[in-house]
Simulated scan of single mutants.
Amino acid sequence: MSATTPQTRPTSSLSSARSTRSARLLDTRPVWLVGVLATLAGAVVTEAFGLIARGVGVPMEVASPGATEAAEIPVGGFFGGVLFWSVVGIVLAVALARWAKRPARIFVVTTVVLTALSMAGPAVAPHTATSTQIVLAVSHLVAAAVIIPVVARRLSHRRP
């Protein structure tokens, strides 16, 4: 190589090194902290998804079973919902890290089943537009897609 040729790493290997460093950092943190960080990321992404849906005209009004009319989902509603329900997942992850032989596998199976069951809520929501039901169901998948892999990766490393 000549003295004038810059010695740089390709961009892909640089970003790969950063993501590897970040993953290792999360692998050494307490399970509860990784759960909280994953939850915050999932809540932000899910709220952004909800805002985009709202921006393209999906009505954000939903009714609970037994309600006579739909009420508007407020801005921040997706974020708050993810935070609320993720507490269950964090408690589950901490318990599995402490007592399970294969915590990552049990966590993934359990949370995927719970995510699938959670999609029944939007499907049966009365007085709710079909487009809203679809957005709500997909928002459950969005949150799960962000949170579950991060927590499962942490659980695959035995340190609680």
Rank of each mutant, 00 (worst) to 15 (best):
W99Y: 07
I90W: 06
A23M: 00
R18I: 15
V91M: 13
R29I: 14
G66Y: 00
A144K: 12
R158H: 13
H127A: 14
A3H: 11
M119I: 08
V108H: 01
P122E: 06
I148G: 05
V62N: 01
R24C: 05
G55N: 04
S16N: 15
R153P: 12
P160W: 12
T110Y: 07
H127L: 11
R105V: 14
G50N: 07
T132C: 11
E69I: 07
Q7I: 08
A3Q: 10
V62D: 01
S13V: 14
S156F: 04
A93C: 11
V34L: 01
S13W: 09
W32V: 13
P74C: 09
G55T: 05
S64F: 06
P10L: 00
A63K: 00
A152Q: 14
A93P: 09
L40H: 04
Q133A: 11
V82H: 02
T39Y: 03
A137N: 13
A152K: 10
T128L: 08
V45Q: 01
T46N: 02
V135I: 06
I148F: 06
M60R: 05
L92T: 04
A17Y: 04
F49A: 01
S16F: 14
V44A: 12
T39D: 06
T4D: 10
R18E: 15
V113A: 14
G50A: 10
L136E: 00
I134K: 11
G121M: 05
E72P: 02
T128H: 04
R153F: 10
G89V: 04
T128D: 05
V109Y: 07
T4F: 12
R102C: 12
V34K: 00
S15V: 15
V56W: 06
R154L: 06
V34W: 00
G77P: 03
T68Q: 12
V109D: 07
E69H: 13
A71R: 07
S22I: 13
H140Q: 11
L33A: 15
A41N: 08
G50R: 07
A143Y: 04
R21P: 05
H157G: 11
A125C: 04
T130I: 03
L96K: 00
G57K: 12
G76F: 02
P122L: 08
M119Q: 03
E69C: 06
V109I: 15
S118D: 10
A100E: 13
L92W: 01
A70N: 08
S86F: 07
R159K: 14
S15E: 12
P103Y: 05
R18F: 15
V113M: 08
V146K: 06
A43W: 00
S13M: 11
G89T: 05
S64M: 10
L14Q: 10
R98S: 11
P103W: 04
A67M: 04
A125W: 02
A41H: 08
A67F: 02
V36P: 00
L37P: 03
P74R: 08
V109W: 09
A137G: 15
V113S: 10
S156K: 07
T5M: 05
T20A: 13
A71L: 08
W32A: 14
A144T: 13
G50K: 10
A23T: 03
L96A: 00
A70L: 12
W99C: 03
L96N: 00
G76W: 01
A100V: 14
R102P: 10
V34Y: 00
G42T: 02
A116R: 15
S15A: 13
V109T: 12
I148V: 15
